[in-house]
Design a protein around this nucleic acid. Structure first.
Lengths: 163, 163
DNA sequence: TATCGTATGTTATAGCATAACACGTCAAGA
DNA sequence: TCTTGACGTGTTATGCTATAACATACGATA
C-alpha cells in the first residue's frame, strides 16, 4: 500500500501501532496544553500518520474533501499550521510538504533526512546539531528562535538498490 | 538605500568591495570549472550582490526585464539555478528567495540565520553543525548529499531595537 | 440568553515554479 | 565549408503553493 520506505527510521516496524500511538500522544498533549484537537485537526493528523510520509497541503485537502470536510486550501493549511504549532507535525520546506511528528511531546529538535529517490523522510536526533548551530549563531550575536535542518541524500534502502 | 542590515554578518562593512570581490571570485571560479558566466547569469549575480539580501526570483526577474533581458520566469530561475549549482548563490527555502554566496569557492557548508524582523540573512560558519548532522545521518545509514540549515530569530540590530 | 472567542467554510487572489517548444550561437568534426 | 550537436536564451502556457478577507456556526460563560 505504501511503496515508500519507513519514515520513522529507515526500517520496517509496526505501522498500525505507530499511527495509533501518535494519535494517543497527540490527545494527551493537547489536553495538557488546553487546546482543542477538533475533528478536522484530528483527521489531518490521522491522514499524516496513515500516509507515513510527507504530504503536500493539497494532498491532505483532497483526502479531507473526500470525507465531507471543506475543500478549500485554508481548511488544510489551518489544520496543518495548528499541528505544526503544537509540535504534532513538521513542515518540510524542501518538499513543500508536511509530516506527522514521530516524537511529539519530548522536547526534540528534529533534523530531517530526505531520500531523493523515494522521498522518504526520517527525523534524526539532532540535539548535537542544534547545539553547534546555537554556538555559531551566538558568535554573531544572533538569537535562534526556530530552525529547519533538512538534508537530502540516499536512504539505506535506496542506496542498497543503487549498488 | 538598503534598509536591511548587513547580510554578510550583522555588521557594517565596505559594501562596494563586497560586491566587486564577489564578482571577481565568481569569474575565477567559472573559469576554473569550464562553465560560462553569461551576461544574464553575471547580471543576476550582480543583482544579488548589490541587493545584499535575499531576493525572490520574481524580484530578480523584474530587474532583469528592466534592463532588456527576457521577462519570463524561466529566465530568472535558470540563471539562479545555475548560480546555486556552481556555489555562487544559495536558495533560502524559508523565504522562497535567493542570496549571493558570501564565501564562494571555499568548500563551505553554510547555515543561514534569518532575522524575522528585518529579513536580513547571514551565512554562519557551520562546519561543526554539518559534522554533527553527518554523524546523526550515519547512525541511520543515511548518506547526506546536500543540506539546508536555516534558522530564524533576531539579529543583533533588531534585538537591540526591541529592548 | 446574550455575548465573546474560537473554529470552520468560502470566495478570490497572490505568489512561486516548471514543462515544453522555438530560436540563435558557437565550436568540433566531416 | 557545411553540418551537426550542445548549450543558452526567449516565449507560451500552465500547475502548484499559500494567504487575505469575509461569512457562518458552535460552545463556553456571564
Amino acid at each position: 500500500m505504501d511503496p515508500a520506505p519507513d519514515a520513522r527510521a529507515f526500517a520496517h516496524h509496526d505501522h498500525a501501532h505507530c499511527a495509533g500511538d501518535g494519535l494517543a500522544r497527540a490527545e494527551a498533549l493537547v489536553a495538557e496544553k488546553g487546546v482543542r484537537l477538533t475533528p478536522v485537526r484530528r483527521r489531518v493528523l490521522e491522514i499524516l500518520l496513515e500516509a507515513h510520509r510527507a504530504l503536500g497541503a493539497y494532498d491532505v485537502l483532497q483526502r479531507l474533501a473526500a470525507e465531507g470536510f471543506g475543500n478549500q486550501p485554508p481548511v488544510a493549511y489551518r489544520a496543518l499550521d495548528f499541528l505544526v504549532e503544537q509540535g504534532l507535525a513538521h513542515r518540510i520546506r524542501r518538499l513543500n510538504a508536511f509530516t506527522a511528528c514521530m516524537h511529539p511531546g519530548t522536547a526534540h529538535a528534529p533534523a530531517f533526512l530526505i531520500c531523493r529517490v523515494c522521498d522518504a523522510v526520517a527525523e534524526a536526533p539532532a540535539a548535537p546539531v542544534h547545539a553547534a548551530l546555537d554556538d555559531a549563531a551566538a558568535a554573531l550575536g544572533f538569537v535562534i528562535e526556530r530552525s529547519n535542518i533538512e538534508a537530502s541524500g540516499l536512504c539505506p534502502t535506496c542506496r542498497g538498490a543503487a549498488a
